[in-house]
Simulated scan of single mutants.
Amino acid sequence: MPLMTSHQRAILLMIIAPTLWSIAGVLTRHLDSAQGFEVTFWRSLFSGLFVGGALLYQQGAARTVATIRHAGGMGVVSGLMWSVMFVCFMVALTRTTVANTLIVLSVSPLLTAFLAWVILKERVAPRTWLAIGAAFVGISWMFVNSMSEVGGKHLVGMMIAGAVPVAAAFNLIAIKRAGHGVDLIPAVLLGSVFSAALMLPVAWPLNTSMHDILILATLGFFQLGLPCMLMVKAMKHLSAPEVSLLALLEVLLGPLWAWLGAGEVPAQETLIGGAVVMAALVFNELAPSGKQGKRESTALQ
């Protein structure tokens, strides 16, 4: 009897992935001079190197090429969505505050659930809708006092950030639509390549210090490439809304790492809102029981 079911292993992967995503803020606090476009370029470049290297190590050159080809049009679509997320998130942060950006990103589970219902004909459990609503309220409460006025530069930044949850939702739907027979980990590689190629002209000339390059390599390898690969693996055994909800751990953990690693003490609202988000995530995973829970777990495997 296995220690963990496929569904439980997928949940574990989707806890590890946003935990790694969440270290972006605290690591970027320690950059000397690298800014928006340059950060996005180097992070995407190192992500591509990591994912490409992992594929070559696991499959060899010939099989890696075959896997990329087998991903086909759906792989290109997913790669484009990854690229939009990689670019727009960092650009948004140069135009508005972290709080404004994260508030916009928090609509992703709701949009994902809606698209899964419309496109995949996937039934979304009432508990998931409830968890999505509770998580959105919790995130809003976390950042309510630090929200900037929506106008001018901030409005542009929030509009750019709006592309991230849209791309994330469509990406999750694309991965689920591809099914078990298509490996879309190469799409993470394509997204990294697209993003780096797009950012190079606006990031040039590259004046990044070696200190910053080491931090950006860490971001590319362990904050972007690895967790995105883990998410694609987890998607095989989780519903799209479930993945999108668990991804909100990034928003929850980001302020914690900033507190521990950069001395940014969280406000009381952050702690209360974070508790609400955590409760919503735990509720969504533990609510199913008995025959209903077994049917849902079987359906996802």
Score class of each variant (00 low, 15 high):
Q301L: 13
L110K: 05
I160R: 06
Q59N: 10
W21K: 08
N171W: 07
A234G: 13
T5I: 00
S47K: 08
A116M: 05
V84D: 07
S78M: 13
G162Q: 12
M74I: 15
M74K: 15
G220S: 10
W21T: 06
A62T: 10
L3S: 11
T94G: 05
N145A: 06
G273W: 00
M142L: 03
A169Y: 03
N284S: 15
R69Q: 14
P109M: 04
C228K: 05
A125P: 02
R127V: 14
V243R: 01
R95C: 11
A234K: 05
I16M: 14
F194H: 10
I11N: 13
V98G: 06
Q8Y: 03
T97C: 03
F37W: 15
T96A: 01
W259L: 00
G79D: 02
V84P: 08
A287E: 06
V98M: 14
A17T: 09
N145P: 01
Q223H: 15
V150F: 12
L253Q: 04
S33P: 10
S289Y: 12
I23Q: 10
A71E: 12
T96M: 00
S195L: 10
G261A: 06
G79L: 05
V232C: 11
I160Y: 06
R9W: 07
L110V: 08
S195G: 13
G157K: 05
T112S: 11
T64A: 05
T67W: 05
K153S: 10
V124L: 10
L256W: 08
I132V: 14
S244H: 04
P241T: 06
G274A: 04
G133H: 07
A113F: 02
D183S: 11
G220H: 04
V39N: 09
L130W: 07
M74R: 15
P109C: 11
L56A: 00
M1F: 02
S108D: 14
L12F: 15
I132N: 03
R9I: 09
